[in-house]
Computed example of a mutant assay.
Amino acid sequence: MAVTIRRAGRQDWQELDCIMGEEIDAGHVPGLEIVPLKEEEWMEWFDSHGSRHPVFAGERDGRMICWADLAVSRWSYPFDHVVEATIHIGTEGRGLERPLLRFLEQQATALGYGKVMMLVRADDRNLLHNCRCCGYRDVGVLRGHGFYLGRLVDMVLLERLLSPNLEQLREYYCDHYPFYQEYFLRQQQALEEEMHRNGMIRSPQDPSKWIPAPREVPEESAGDTMEWEPIR
Score class of each variant (00 low, 15 high):
15 E>C: 04
21 G>Y: 03
22 E>Q: 14
24 I>V: 10
26 A>C: 05
30 P>M: 06
31 G>C: 09
32 L>Y: 11
32 L>D: 10
32 L>T: 14
34 I>R: 04
37 L>S: 15
38 K>V: 11
38 K>R: 13
38 K>I: 07
39 E>N: 06
40 E>P: 09
40 E>I: 11
41 E>N: 14
44 E>A: 15
45 W>K: 14
46 F>N: 03
46 F>I: 04
47 D>I: 08
51 S>Y: 10
53 H>G: 01
55 V>N: 09
55 V>H: 04
55 V>F: 05
56 F>P: 07
57 A>N: 04
57 A>M: 12
59 E>T: 04
60 R>N: 04
63 R>G: 03
63 R>V: 15
63 R>M: 06
64 M>A: 08
67 W>P: 02
69 D>F: 08
69 D>C: 15
71 A>L: 12
72 V>T: 07
73 S>C: 13
74 R>A: 14
75 W>M: 13
78 P>E: 13
80 D>I: 10
82 V>E: 13
84 E>S: 09
85 A>G: 03
87 I>D: 03
87 I>M: 04
90 G>M: 06
92 E>P: 00
96 L>N: 06
97 E>H: 10
98 R>Q: 15
99 P>F: 07
101 L>A: 03
103 F>S: 06
104 L>G: 07
108 A>C: 08
108 A>E: 05
108 A>W: 06
108 A>T: 03
111 L>K: 04
111 L>F: 02
113 Y>H: 09
113 Y>F: 15
114 G>I: 13
116 V>G: 03
118 M>T: 06
120 V>H: 00
123 D>R: 01
125 R>T: 11
126 N>A: 14
128 L>W: 00
131 C>K: 02
131 C>P: 05
136 Y>D: 10
138 D>M: 13
139 V>S: 11
140 G>F: 06
141 V>W: 00
144 G>S: 10
144 G>F: 03
145 H>T: 03
147 F>L: 15
148 Y>T: 01
153 V>Y: 00
154 D>E: 09
